[in-house]
Simulated assay, not measured.
Amino acid sequence: MSTSSPHYLTAEQDQQVRRWERWNRRYFIFAFVALVILLVFSSQLGLSSGQDWGALGPLLVLLIVPIIVLQLRLRCPACDHRIGWQAKLQAPDQCRHCGIVLRARQSR
Rank of each mutant, 00 (worst) to 15 (best):
Q90N: 11
Q15Y: 12
C79D: 02
R73Y: 15
G99K: 00
L70E: 08
A31D: 05
I83Y: 04
S107K: 13
G54W: 04
S48R: 15
Y27H: 11
P77F: 02
V36R: 02
A78K: 08
A31H: 03
T10D: 01
Q90S: 07
L45V: 15
L35T: 13
N24W: 08
Q51N: 11
I64H: 05
L39F: 11
A87C: 09
L9S: 00
L9P: 00
V69Q: 13
G46A: 06
I68G: 10
G46M: 08
D80N: 11
S42E: 10
K88N: 15
I68K: 04
V69F: 12
Q86T: 11
C98M: 02
L39N: 13
W85S: 05
Q15G: 09
P77A: 05
S42V: 07
L63Q: 06
I29R: 12
C95Y: 01
R75K: 13
L89K: 06
L39K: 04
F30I: 08
Q13L: 04
S4R: 08
D80I: 11
H97G: 02
T10C: 00
L62R: 06
V101C: 02
R103N: 00
Y27F: 14
I37D: 03
S2R: 10
H7R: 04
W53H: 09
Y27N: 07
I68V: 15
S42W: 04
V101F: 01
L60R: 09
H7T: 14
Q16P: 03
W23I: 12
Q13N: 05
Q94F: 07
L60D: 03
